Amino acid sequence: MSSRTSPIGRQITIRRTVARDAKRLTRLVRGSGAYAGQYASAVAGYRVGPDYLEAHRSFVAVGGEEDGGRVLGFYSLILAPPELDLLFVADEAQGRGIGRLLVAHMQSEARAAGIDRVKVVSHLPAEDFYHRVGAVRTGTALANPPAVPWDRPEFEFRISPE
């Protein structure tokens, strides 16, 4: 577990997920404003299960007292092949630097695992975010109907050794 201060001065703790986080993370994914409207099919029925959390390096960002200790975001790193599978920040917590903290944490985890590159298939509205946090565009993931009927940008984080 690591505590950090967000760029706006709020205390954030990043900890490994546990099975009891699964329902809360499922609600965060399904309730994401980034997946409203035309993008809703991508998360309709999506479930983050305890088995998924156990199988991958998944971490949550938990707010301090001012946030009531709520889960504000999470990510999941798949090690083989290396991919940032999920990265979500609660709608009400966006713009506070939590996504940037989670990406930095993910890069540290990848580095510790001996990984030098991590792939990301981005949601279209998140493309600018990935550019801002240092990911490099590498291609396009083609549509996969019916759940994802649109092409998505593909990125890569290049993990430098410390």
Rank of each mutant, 00 (worst) to 15 (best):
V133F: 02
K23E: 14
E65W: 10
A104F: 03
L142Y: 07
D51M: 09
A112D: 14
R152I: 01
I14V: 13
A55V: 01
I159E: 01
P82S: 06
I14H: 08
P149W: 13
G73S: 12
S32C: 02
V103N: 05
L86Y: 08
A34T: 11
H131L: 06
A40P: 10
T5F: 02
S6A: 13
G69H: 11
G69Y: 11
G63T: 06
A93S: 09
E156Y: 02
A55K: 11
A36W: 04
G37F: 02
A80I: 15
Y39S: 14
R70Y: 01
E83D: 03
P125K: 15
R117H: 04
R4C: 04
F74L: 10
V89M: 06
G49W: 07
Q107N: 02
A90F: 00
G45S: 12
R132K: 13
G9M: 11
P161N: 15
D51E: 14
S41H: 10
V18I: 14
H131Q: 14
V120K: 15
S41W: 07
D128W: 10
H105N: 12
A40Y: 11
A19R: 15
A61K: 05
D116T: 09
G45C: 07
A141C: 14
T17Y: 03
A34E: 09
E66C: 01
Q94N: 05
T5Y: 04
A22D: 12
G49T: 12
G45L: 05
H123K: 14
T138Y: 05
A36P: 05
A110V: 03
G73Y: 01
T13G: 08
E66Q: 13
S58F: 03
A93W: 07
R4S: 08
R16N: 07
G97P: 03
R70C: 01
D51A: 10
H105E: 10
F129N: 12
R137V: 03
A61F: 00
G9Y: 04
S32K: 05
L84C: 04
V136A: 13
D128H: 12
R152F: 00
E66T: 08
D128M: 10
S3E: 12
L87E: 04
A36I: 10
V43E: 08
A147T: 11
H105V: 06
A40W: 12
V118S: 01
V148P: 04
E92F: 01
G69R: 13
V43F: 05
R70G: 02
A112Q: 14
A22N: 15
